[in-house]
Amino acid sequence: MPVFYAPESEAHDPQFWMLRGVPSTNKELPERAHRLLAGLARLGLTPQSPPVADQAALRQVHTPDYLAFLETAWAEWQKMPNAGPEVVPNLHPQKDRHHYPAGITGRAGWHLSDTGCPLGQHTWAAALRGADTALAAAAAVRDGAPAAYALCRPPGHHATADNAGGHCFLNNSAIAAQSLLDIHPRVAVLDIDVHHGNGTQEIFYDRADVLTVSVHTDPSNFYPFFLGYADETGSGAGEGFNLNLPLPQGSGDDLWLATIDKALARIADFQPGVLVLALGLDAHENDPFKGMKVTTAAFTRAAELIRAAGLPTVIVQEGGYLSNDLRDNIEAFLRPWT
């Protein structure tokens, strides 16, 4: 199985995060990639460095204002007196009734939806390489590989067309899915991260060519809080093409796997030409976010279910945070594909 990783992404090393009102260490650290790479090594998988992709692929998913902000924000931020080392907003507008601001402080609030995505000196370059990684895996599947894995960092599924959030800047899964529409009239995205893929949902919410399905912890008291409910089914042309399957916090193997099976049944009905799998390993029982209690063995069983669906599959790494099990979990999930 082709696997891709861009070492340049390790330059993105976010520091700031706010946890229950206390400035804390950010959870999306380069060490995540190191542990995932160790799992790949156990399987004998050597990552390829992805080629630099045409940024036109990004513009099919994200707005011009947002991409310009990501590229220039850190340099503009540093020009302010007493600026901190990372772009962190102190306000968040209600966009439906507010105007787009000219200044960097206002634009930071407009485009950064929470404090989980501080933007540093190397964030833009790392995010670009993360998107390159997803596009390389999509290209490998487009060229005939049954499956390919993209070790993307930073992750992407919380990024909307014009917002970063939840450690995510560019929506790697959505960018991969959009690129595959060049050859497939229908693409499905299955997100099994413990957090709802709110950014991916919003990007495709009014479209019928991409089916978005998410299995995640009930957002009523879990990030992203405001989206991910079962009554969100799409709008306009996209009505019926978004399926959310939220599970109670603390759910274990049997319910998680049964719900993935339900998700796959809906995907089979849609008859896509290809599947983009937004892979989160943070449903694991020892993940620091404590959303579910899925075991390492269940990741192998989930992979077997998804592989048995028989679709060419682009596996895009989303969450999965620092625990001693992260290396074991990626090995367990990818083993059925190798």
Rank of each mutant, 00 (worst) to 15 (best):
M1T: 05
V3D: 04
F4G: 08
P7Y: 13
A11V: 03
F16K: 06
W17E: 00
R20D: 03
G21M: 03
V22M: 06
N26T: 08
P30R: 08
E31K: 15
A33G: 11
A33S: 14
R35H: 14
R42P: 04
T46C: 08
Q48K: 08
S49I: 12
S49N: 09
S49C: 02
P51C: 07
D54N: 12
Q60Y: 00
H62S: 05
D65R: 04
A68N: 09
E71Y: 06
E71F: 06
E71P: 11
E71D: 13
A73T: 04
A73F: 01
A75M: 11
E76L: 14
Q78T: 06
Q78M: 12
K79N: 14
M80K: 14
P81K: 05
N82P: 02
N82K: 15
A83N: 06
V88D: 07
V88R: 04
N90M: 14
L91D: 15
Q94D: 12
K95S: 13
K95I: 11
D96W: 14
H99L: 12
H99A: 14
L112Y: 00
G116Y: 00
C117R: 00
P118M: 09
L119D: 09
Q121M: 08
W124F: 13
W124S: 09
R129E: 01
A131Y: 05
A131I: 03
T133H: 00
A134K: 10
L135K: 15
A136Y: 01
A138K: 01
A139M: 08
A139H: 10
A139Y: 00
A140G: 02
R142N: 04
A147C: 12
A148E: 04
L151Q: 10
C152N: 10
C152Q: 03
P154V: 12
T160I: 02
N163S: 09
A164V: 00
G165Q: 02
G166I: 03
H167R: 02
F169D: 01
L170T: 04
S173N: 06
L180F: 14
P185Q: 12
R186W: 10
L190M: 11
V194C: 07
H195E: 05
T200D: 07
T200F: 08
E202W: 06
I203Y: 02
D209W: 02
N221A: 11
F222C: 12
Y223G: 11
P224W: 08
G228R: 11
D231L: 01
D231E: 15
D231M: 07
G236L: 15
G240A: 09
F241V: 01
N242Q: 09
N244S: 10
N244V: 13
P246C: 08
P248N: 06
D254M: 11
W256P: 01
K262N: 10
F270P: 00
G273F: 06
V274N: 03
V276Y: 03
L279H: 00
L279K: 09
G280M: 04
L281P: 07
A283C: 15
A283M: 11
E285G: 01
N286Y: 15
F289K: 11
M292V: 02
T295E: 05
R301N: 03
A303I: 00
E304S: 10
A309R: 07
L311P: 00
P312T: 09
T313W: 09
V316G: 15
E318F: 13
G320R: 13
L322F: 15
S323Y: 13
S323I: 15
L326C: 15
A332Q: 12
F333P: 01
R335D: 15
P336K: 09
W337P: 13
